[in-house]
Design a protein around this nucleic acid. Sequence first.
DNA 1: CGATTCTTTGAAAACAGTCAATCTGTGTGG
DNA 2: CCACACAGATTGACTGTTTTCAAAGAATCG
Lengths: 201, 201
Amino acid sequence: MYSAKTLFQPFFDYIKTKSSISLTDEEMIMVMDNYKIKHLRKRQYLLQEGDVCKYMAFIAKGAGRMYRINEHGQDSVIRLAVESWWLGDFESYNLGTPSKYNIEMTEDSDVLLISRESSQELIRNVPAIAQMINEIDKSGTIATQRRLQSAISLGAEERYQELSDLYPEFIRRFPQSMIASYLGISAETLSRIRKNLLRSK
Amino acid sequence: MYSAKTLFQPFFDYIKTKSSISLTDEEMIMVMDNYKIKHLRKRQYLLQEGDVCKYMAFIAKGAGRMYRINEHGQDSVIRLAVESWWLGDFESYNLGTPSKYNIEMTEDSDVLLISRESSQELIRNVPAIAQMINEIDKSGTIATQRRLQSAISLGAEERYQELSDLYPEFIRRFPQSMIASYLGISAETLSRIRKNLLRSK
DNA sequence: CGATTCTTTGAAAACAGTCAATCTGTGTGG
DNA sequence: CCACACAGATTGACTGTTTTCAAAGAATCG
């Protein structure tokens, strides 16, 4: 059994990495009051297509994927996430529209959930959180831009190499079929790419 | 010859579409003080690879593209923009790092330039601008995410169709070779796709 | 007009996807 | 503890799509 304190520790550590301001004790309590702790088992869903995404989820422990079913009926993974990453459909969360995505945990996980209202409340009252959110938005925008650039200008093998270099963790913790979908290639192609890379090193 | 007033009109109109708050006369002056007007002719560069992107540019009139030279020595267009769109390397602008991108005007243009310092100044003092920036960040994130999703899950023809539906303006105003690069396909492939679509409708 | 740039077309090669079969490892129930 | 089922990964053969290269054909601009 975990205490709330234990579960929040990764989050407080994370805030430190994203913000130059530190939290007072009262602020820490305020944060803990506004985030809901949720335990999810492998294969459980945090969000299903058609529902509105009410919460952004910080992964304190575990891993998950966000994907959608495309027009050809196949899964298409838009995001993979492990500890200290966020999961949530930004569009649905901000606009209140039904989501086209599913979020499924790929390992037993502990997540911290925050609603839009609670988030705005915290942003108003806790400077470190305001700065963190800002930082996340900025680095998220930059990361997505980079990934888009890779998607349109690199071949499959180069994209896989890049992912291995950038987030080796992903390669270890997600099944290859998910990695393939994340890269926008078939599982078979990824398998052959890996064989190639083994031969040539 | 244009007056400053004329050049700023598109921008003030734009602010109205992005913010529920309206500008007072003093605020309008403040805005005009902080944005620099620049006229650029077709083929002129707003940013060159290796330079730090000091300004974000609002296009009052004209059009441009942001691209980079990839590892295979080819142009790769990451962004196209016409009136009421922004051009700038978000990463370089925010982090102060040398840019990997080039920004070139594809038509004679009038742009409004804002530095990071001036932008922060305006955000602090003009609520309508603060709201506008917020709105831009949010919708930009959503748009990039959608484009990434399309890039990894759709075929070339579907991506072209989507672009035609979403921004028919682009198809009219940019050479096909740039559209192709923006979609991540060769100019020849785009030419063939267009032939196909003509036959089938 | 003449020069340059953009687009189209053809043919061959490279690349990635699909389908079906096999292989591997894991975990479960008998 | 074994046998079996299951999911994930690999492989081969085939198909389809996209790229590349080269050449020819429009379109644009001074």
